[in-house]
């Protein structure tokens, strides 16, 4: 089970209009691993994430989620596939007109047949998982940035997803909060058995959580290295990768 491919990217080329951002990307994310997409600012990390979760259409190439090509599937199949993914956006992306409980309720109402009592139990449980027990009736604007991020995570895991995507999970968090969030990601992976894909440039997180990774370069317009981050640090000879991983200028 552990070696099975969960997400398979083949010859992916991404572009805005005709301006190519990254081309010829090939990588496989195995089931249950934590995969890091790294690279400097503006290299197309977030764009790649937007492709993986079906927000953008590839210019060329395929994205296979659980063996199904996202863009060959019908709209309905695609929605079904995407609903098995949990996404944590950079700023949490909580719906500001709803309380935390209502934010979590939306996917639960949409994709499950649970009773209202069960839904409220699940909501309390998920909020407790991210350390926000009792904050059901708060609006996103009433809690701090770190709490918003954790609430976003609670919403991302509301449907017990198979695969979790994180866009810059530590952006805007202090070192301790960001460490706690990394721990939480690890614990959730271990206990839920979910696959995790993280976009980040935070070195501390990359080495703490990453099982495998891909390094995108804005000038080469493709990935210039891949493998476990710790091994890359030891073995990579590419000066661009070394500079990035050792924080030298």
């Amino acid at each position: 089970m552990a070696t099975q491919a969960h997400l398979d990217i083949r010859n992916l080329t991404m572009a805005y209009g005709d301006a190519v951002i990254q081309e010829n990307l090939n990588f496989t994310v195995k089931r249950g691993e934590i995969f890091v997409i790294m690279g400097g600012s503006g290299c197309g990390k977030s764009t790649l994430l937007r492709h993986l979760i079906g927000l953008m259409t590839p210019y060329e190439g395929q994205i296979l989620l659980d063996g199904t090509d996202l863009w060959q599937a019908s709209q309905e199949e695609r929605n079904q596939l995407i609903s098995r993914c949990g996404v944590l956006y950079q700023g949490g992306a909580l719906w500001s007109s709803m309380t935390l409980a209502e934010n979590l309720e939306v996917p639960l109402k949409e994709y499950t047949t649970l009773s209202n009592k069960q839904i409220s139990e699940v909501i309390s449980y998920k909020l407790a998982l991210v350390g926000l027990a009792g904050f059901e009736d708060y609006y996103p604007s009433e809690i701090s940035g770190g709490m918003q991020k954790r609430a976003g995570l609670a919403r991302a895991i509301a449907l017990d997803p198979d695969i979790l995507f994180f866009d810059e999970p530590s952006a805007g968090l202090d070192p301790i909060s960001s460490r706690l969030l990394d721990d939480l990601i690890l614990q959730l992976r271990d206990s839920l058995g979910a696959t995790v894909v993280i976009v980040t440039h935070e070195l501390a997180s990359i080495f703490t959580v990453g099982d495998n990774s891909i390094f995108l370069d804005p000038d080469a317009k493709t990935s210039i290295a891949s493998g476990a981050p710790k091994e890359l640090l030891e073995t990579s000879t590419d000066p661009r990768v070394r500079k990035f991983l050792t924080r030298t200028t």
Binding site: Q187, S191, G193
Partner: peptide, 14 residues
Amino acid sequence: GAQKLLDLATRVPE
């Protein structure tokens, strides 16, 4: 997994 999740859910008291 369930033990870990229980631990996580009850670690931070309300």
